[in-house]
């Protein structure tokens, strides 16, 4: 790596630039759009020279959307809060249920353990609509439709298998002898789980939690069907910008910028754990 020729450097730089352009350009463009009015966004040909405006953001934050057809009430900030609450709560519940389950699947070989684990994973194979239709009817009958609890419950379909399977792999990578050694040293089963298994699988648990959070945050269909306006997350709330007088591209863009900020910040913060966790080096003695 130390003796790279100039040509190699140029080629590598070009490749990296291309990749960054490919992935970052849409985000960059959305970011620009969020500071423009519908007129400047829709002009042909598009240009990056424009008069920046904060009107999109003020509309979102104040909840008043001015359109040609009059002023519309939108609840974007409420949606953002819903997203945050639903995702956080779902991941929290998912971790509380999934991490001990993952440990059980990794360490205890009980009858049917593989079948149960696979069944849980298979929730991810089925199209969401398949479960949604019967769930809608059940939820209406038992009063869970349009409640946070009901939504968090359904979100476990996304979150739980993800956490379970990722974290299980991390637990399996911890040599069993390390745990045995702690028990022989005189510590109980529970203490061994808390002091050895949990810290050693920590990066994996963080990675799984982060991924689960992003999946929950980006979910659209469950909330669309099962929740009404005041419980809906941003993914569904963004539909409000498709108004009778046209699509409010500026507000959509501003909404997207606001809604990716939390996951973006979380990913940046947790990057260290992610890299550590996914490289697996931490566990090997």
């Amino acid at each position: 790596m130390e003796h790279t020729s100039t040509l190699e450097k140029i080629l590598r730089g070009t490749a990296i630039t291309l990749v960054i352009l490919f992935f970052m350009f849409p985000i960059f463009w959305i970011f620009l759009m969020s500071f423009q009015t519908n007129e400047t966004i829709l002009r042909v040909p598009p240009s990056i020279v424009f008069e920046p405006t904060l009107s999109n953001y003020t509309a979102l934050i104040t909840g008043k959307l001015d359109t040609a057809a009059g002023t519309l009430e939108i609840s974007f900030m409420k949606n953002l809060w819903n997203s945050l609450f639903l995702s956080t709560a779902s991941v929290a519940v998912g971790l509380v249920l999934g991490v001990p389950a993952a440990y059980a699947f990794a360490r205890l070989k009980f009858r049917g353990s593989e079948d149960i684990a696979f069944t849980l994973l298979s929730f991810r194979f089925a199209p969401p609509l398949l479960v949604l239709l019967p769930l809608t009817i059940y939820f209406q009958q038992i009063g869970l439709a349009d409640t946070y609890i009901g939504l968090i419950w359904v979100y476990q379909l996304i979150v739980l298998p993800l956490i379970l399977w990722i974290v299980r792999g991390y637990f399996e990578d911890i040599p069993a002898d390390v745990e045995y050694a702690y028990r022989i040293a005189g510590h109980s089963w529970g203490a061994t789980f808390r002091k050895i298994a949990l810290p050693l699988a920590g990066p994996g648990i963080a990675a799984a939690g982060l991924l689960a959070f992003i999946f929950a945050w980006n979910n659209f269909i469950f909330a669309l069907v099962l929740a009404s306006a005041d419980k809906q997350p941003v993914t569904v709330g963004a539909l409000a910008f498709v108004t009778a007088s046209g699509i409010q591209y500026g507000q959509v863009a501003a909404g997207i910028v606001l809604s990716i900020l939390p996951t973006f910040a979380l990913a940046l913060y947790a990057q260290r754990y992610l890299v550590e966790g996914l490289s697996l080096g931490a566990v090997k003695g």
């Binding site: 040599p175 002898d177 390390v178 050694a181 702690y182 022989i184 003695g285």
Partner: peptide, 12 residues
């Protein structure tokens, strides 16, 4: 007390 062949030290 037991010493393991692969040491089995607590890495953290």
């Amino acid at each position: 007390g037991m010493a393991f062949q692969n040491f089995a030290l607590f890495p953290h």
